[in-house]
Design a protein around this nucleic acid. Structure first.
Length: 154
DNA sequence: GCCAACGTTGGC
DNA sequence: GCCAACGTTGGC
C-alpha cells in the first residue's frame, strides 16, 4: 500500500526545476529539523510513496510537481557540517538525530496555487490547509492525492 | 515586514 | 513536569 505525502521546499533552496536538473533527478531531503517531520521520513516513508512537491515561502506557494520517495532513511550529513546552517552541535555521530530520505522527480506539473487549493471542497481536509499548520512534511490521504492529481489533469 | 501559531528551551 | 520566554515558520 503506497502512502502519500506533501513535502515543502523553498524554491530558493530546492525548486522543482532544481530537482529536474539534479543528477538522477533526485535529491536528499536535508535540513529537516522538526521531530515530527523527521519521524515521518524515518519511520513511515517507504520507497515508492507519492510526494506532492510544494513550493513554500515564495511569491506563489503551491504544489509544483509530483515526486516519489526513492531511498530508505539515512543520516542527514548537514547536521555534522559546522559550516552548514543546518549544523546541529547536539547531534551525536554515533546516534545521529536527523534522518532523511531521498526524493526523485516523477513529473513536473503546472503550479497548483495554495490559493486555488483553498477553494476546493475536496481538499478542505488537507493538513496543509489547516490553520496554524507549519509542518514541512504532512501525510496526504489517498482521496486527497487523487483530487490533487485530478486538478493537475493527471 | 507583520504576526499568528506552534515548537523548543531552560529555570525552577 | 510546568510554563514563560524565545525562536521559527510561512502566508499575506
Amino acid at each position: 500500500m503506497p502512502q502519500y505525502w506533501l513535502m515543502k521546499s523553498e524554491p530558493d533552496e530546492v525548486s522543482i526545476d532544481d530537482l529536474a536538473r539534479a543528477p538522477g533527478k533526485r535529491v536528499p531531503w536535508t535540513g529537516v529539523r522538526n521531530y515530527q517531520a523527521r519521524n515521518y521520513m524515518r519511520d513511515q516513508m517507504r520507497i515508492g510513496d507519492g510526494v506532492l512537491f510544494y513550493h513554500s515561502s515564495c511569491a506563489e506557494p503551491g504544489v509544483a510537481g509530483i515526486a516519489s520517495v526513492c531511498s530508505a532513511p539515512y543520516p542527514d550529513a548537514t547536521q555534522f557540517d559546522r559550516r552548514s546552517k543546518y549544523y546541529d552541535p547536539k547531534s551525536d555521530a554515533a546516534a545521529p538525530r536527523w534522518m532523511h530520505v531521498d526524493v526523485k522527480l516523477v513529473k513536473r506539473t503546472r503550479l497548483l496555487p495554495l490559493r486555488e487549493m483553498r477553494t476546493r471542497p475536496e481538499l478542505a481536509g488537507m493538513l496543509l490547509l489547516r490553520k496554524g499548520n507549519r509542518l514541512s512534511i504532512t501525510p496526504v490521504t489517498e482521496d486527497e492525492w487523487r483530487a490533487v492529481l485530478a486538478l493537475l489533469d493527471l
